[in-house]
């Protein structure tokens, strides 16, 4: 049963009773919250996700709630908690939905050391996974959103889960997080995207989320083989340049972009080396999304 089949009232009811359980890629996530806006966020962006039954194993129990009764009325705040543990300082109430996305990123990045977790967007076409590692501001999410609404399958816009066991990339198809100017860029790029409400004045500026395609969500447990490793860089007015990168440079760069490279130790090095061996590596400068999408379509042909 998909979340979209539930009414707003039913979603709010489930959230209140700690019963909203969603299948997100290979993870089952339970979310509880008394905040009605969270229901709107989920219905808008998570409609295609399966609701799992009461018998299922839940990987992450999460909740969004006010830190105290006072703070519900006076300069309202919200706390994210992972099964009773609160990893962050509270945020303004209006940022509850964005906090869920950040909180779930934290849960996955810190409790999935059976994967090498790379800070990278990853999309797939013709059974080839294209991995875009990038520091904030490099334009990886924007590029990822553009590819995702041009027929590519979204595996993740934020973290690439590379299995230590088989070297494949496992999806966590979640809403794509866009910031500030990227919001308008993507709105102008494609008319058939669905975007959730934009939250202003977060630590990262204005943040909005793009709904993943139904197909990406349905294939949420189907891994993909890494094919290209591309380090993007958005440069104003630049040409669309795909520059081959030596494997040794790529190895150092990718290690810097992992969340748990040092935790995996020798295994981390082995996984990164295997990834580099299996992929063609490039640096990529761009300013025009249309050209970028056309180039990658050719590359994946």
């Amino acid at each position: 049963m998909k979340l979209a089949t539930l009414s707003r009232k039913e979603v709010i009811h489930s959230l209140n009773r700690k019963r909203l359980r969603l299948k997100i890629g290979g993870f089952n996530v339970c979310l509880s919250s008394p905040i009605p806006e969270v229901a709107d966020h989920l219905l808008c962006l998570y409609g295609a996700f399966e609701v799992v039954d009461d018998e299922a194993f839940i990987d992450f129990y999460t909740s969004l709630a006010s830190p105290s009764k006072v703070r519900r009325y006076f300069r309202a705040q919200v706390n994210f908690s992972f099964d009773g543990y609160v990893p962050f300082k509270p945020l303004p109430y209006k940022q509850a939905s964005a906090m869920f996305e950040w909180g779930l990123n934290w849960c996955i990045a810190n409790h999935s050391h059976h994967y090498l977790v790379i800070h990278a967007a990853v999309v797939e076409r013709n059974s080839q996974a294209f991995i875009f590692p990038g520091t904030p501001g490099s334009g990886k999410s924007t590029l990822c959103a553009a590819l995702a609404c041009s027929g590519w399958r979204l595996l993740s816009d934020e973290m690439t889960l590379l299995s230590v066991a088989d070297g494949l990339v496992y999806p966590v198809p979640r809403p794509i997080s866009l910031k500030n100017r990227s919001l308008d860029v993507i709105r102008n790029f494609s008319s058939n995207i669905i975007m959730g409400p934009v939250v202003k004045d977060t630590a990262k500026g204005a943040v909005g989320h793009v709904r993943p395609s139904d197909e990406s969500v349905d294939l949420g447990e189907v891994p993909a083989k890494p094919a290209k490793l591309i380090f993007p860089k958005y440069l104003e007015n630049s040409n669309t340049d795909l520059i081959p990168l030596s494997k040794s440079r790529a190895l150092l760069k990718i290690a810097e972009n992992c969340f748990n490279y040092n935790i995996l130790g020798v295994q981390g090095f082995k996984s990164v080396s295997d990834l580099i061996d299996a992929s063609d590596c490039y640096e990529f400068n761009y300013s025009c999304l249309e050209e970028a999408v056309a180039l990658f379509a050719e590359l994946a042909h």
Partner: peptide
Amino acid sequence: NHIKSAQT
């Protein structure tokens, strides 16, 4: 998976 992750 959770146990393996914790052991790692």
